[in-house]
Write a protein that binds this DNA or RNA. Structure first.
Length: 509
RNA sequence: GCUCCGAUCGUCUAGUCGGCCUAGGACGUGAGAUUUUCAUUCUCAAAAUCGCGGGUUCGAAUCCCGCUCGGAGUACCA
């Protein structure tokens, strides 16, 4: 018996990694790290028809971005490779043969067309066809055909599949770390195809063989696999591997934010949030899907948010770094019911994590937007602006819209703001403001004293009225950070020239 | 249809030996405070008769049964 903790994340490269898949990878990772075990990336590409170029690379890039690392895998190798099932193809055949030899599996020659016809026929009678212990006796397989006929069919190259043979009327129990003991009767299970006519194994066979060969100790996967878990348990038994069978943990599903059903590819852009970690363009259809990374989500925020969708640390803690999560993670605290994705909370998490990003780092994230608007500014200046704006935004992408006036003078003034703020006599006030700015040292206390105390307050003017008009003149609208800090940031000359322009443009009302 | 899984504020959830739960926290929402504006921040509030009905018990969100509703699976997909 091997006591080492070994878990795997085993996606199939059929498209971009869904956010639910990301969570599965995350839970596996947290568990492995906490236990000092190994985290393995295995690519399950046994379905050649659904293979999508670039998907594997996408998966690796996405998990790397999020800080989910592997100890062994398709991209880094390891002692149990290869880690891509298509490269392990020859291996599965012998295991299928073993099952065949031991009477746990049989050859089936029914064509897809025959199977379809059979299903349709059952449908008309409002029944569902299942290839199982009751129907297999009426199908074309090595159980019903004479041995020499079976041999002749195989030798002549007739396509066939290998099906698992469930025992009749046996209770099969699956002990799940999250759901407890789940029992099913073999009579209700269908004889799943283990080996396809194209020479490739199906998920079920490849998965069990690889988990065994790779010495996987815990299988942490989505709940959609729970119904086939009994088959997997039976497979371990049929192979004689029950003593080293991994423990199962079936995770609750991620649900749509509204309506019914599990979160799907389509929901994302329809409801205004990404369901994929990274942007993705489907190579066949050209269809584009947006990702968390490109939308400006911070990886730490995505990890934290995802960790809490279906798990909790057992207390009120919510802000947790990857290291915190590794320390606190526990399968006991994974919930059983599906979790509905909440965009607002995701936004909040990002806001929280954005506050921790340094001004210079945020400036770096802001740079593409500045370039897009043809703005060049010193890194220090951009960082200062970012520091001022940080707490007011949740995503770097909101930066330009909320702080463009730090880089370009307003070319127009919000009419509603003019109506509300620019009262008669305001041009005189603004001219006075210019005079004050020119006469005092250009620093916070001096400006505050001369402008607020000596001019506005001493003369009994309305602070809000004048300061907001000043803001309108300098910024173009009525929102933004502290006015004096703002003037200090854009500089004396720029401030004065903007006020002057506002006086000329808006004029007296 | 059949099989399996699930069910606490709008959402994520706490609740793991039944009593500390007149059910706690967070997001969101509302109100107030701070601010020259907006945002941030802070304070307060509303919000779950614990899906429904039975039972066990001195006592049940917590245990048992039934029902209902929701979800998943039911492919030579994973």
């Amino acid at each position: 018996m091997n006591n080492e903790i070994r878990v795997r994340f085993a996606p199939s490269p059929t498209g971009p990694l869904h956010i639910g898949g990301v969570r599965t990878a995350l839970y596996n990772y947290l568990f492995a790290r906490q236990k000092g075990g190994k985290m393995i990336l295995r690519i399950e590409d046994t379905d050649q028809t659904r293979f999508v170029p670039g998907a594997e690379q996408y998966i690796i890039e996405a998990l790397t971005w999020l800080g989910i690392e592997f100890d062994e895998g398709v991209h880094i190798g390891g002692p149990y490779g290869p880690y891509r099932q298509s490269e392990r193809k020859p291996l599965y055949r012998e295991y299928a043969d073993q099952l065949l030899r031991d009477g746990h599996a049989y050859y089936a020659f029914d064509t897809p067309e025959e199977l379809d016809a059979r299903r349709k026929e059952c449908e008309t009678r409002k029944e569902v066809f299942q290839y199982d212990c009751t129907t297999r006796t009426s199908m074309r397989n090595s159980l019903t055909l004479p041995a020499d006929e079976v041999k002749r069919l195989i030798d002549s190259g007739t396509p066939y599949v290998v099906r698992f043979m469930f025992p009749d009327d046996t209770e099969i129990t699956v002990d799940d770390l999250i759901r407890g003991r789940v029992t099913m009767n073999s009579r209700l299970l269908d004889d799943k195809v283990l080996f396809k006519s194209d020479g490739m194994p199906t998920y079920h066979l490849a998965n069990i063989v690889d988990d065994h060969l790779m010495k996987i100790s815990h299988v942490i996967r989505g709940e959609e696999w729970l119904p086939s878990a009994p088959l997997h348990v039976m497979l371990y038994k049929a192979f004689g591997w029950q003593d080293t069978m991994p423990q199962f943990a079936h995770l609750p599903l991620l649900l749509k934010p509204e309506g019914n059903g599990k979160l799907s590819k389509r929901d994302g852009d329809r409801l205004g949030f990404p369901v994929f970690p990274l942007d993705w363009t489907d190579p066949k259809t050209g269809e584009q899907s947006s990702g968390y990374r490109e939308r400006g989500y911070l990886p730490e925020a995505v990890v934290n948010m995802l960790a809490l969708l279906g798990w909790n640390p057992g207390d009120d803690r919510e802000m947790m770094s990857m290291n915190d999560l590794i320390q606190l993670f526990s399968i006991d605290h994974i919930s059983k019911s599906g979790a509905r994705f909440n965009v607002e909370k995701a936004r909040w998490f990002n806001h929280e994590y954005l506050q921790k990003v340094s001004d210079t780092e945020l400036a770096r994230l802001f740079e593409p937007q500045l370039q897009a608007h043809g703005v060049g500014a010193s890194p220090d200046y951009v960082a200062t602006v970012c520091g001022l704006m940080k707490e007011r935004i949740s995503f770097p992408s909101e930066l330009w819209d909320t702080c463009h006036y730090f880089f370009v003078a307003p070319d127009s003034y919000d009419p509603a703001a003019i109506k509300k703020r620019w009262k008669p006599g305001m041009t005189t006030h603004m001219q006075k403001v210019i005079d004050i700015l020119q006469s005092v040292p250009f620093e916070h206390d001096a400006i505050h004293h001369a402008l607020i105390d000596e001019y506005i307050t001493a003369n009994g003017y309305n602070i809000g009225q004048i300061m907001n008009s000043l803001r309108l003149a300098v910024v173009g609208t009525t929102v933004g950070p502290d006015m004096i800090t703002l003037m200090l940031t854009i500089g004396k000359e720029e401030t004065i020239s903007r006020v002057r322009r506002a006086i000329d443009t808006i004029g007296e009302v």
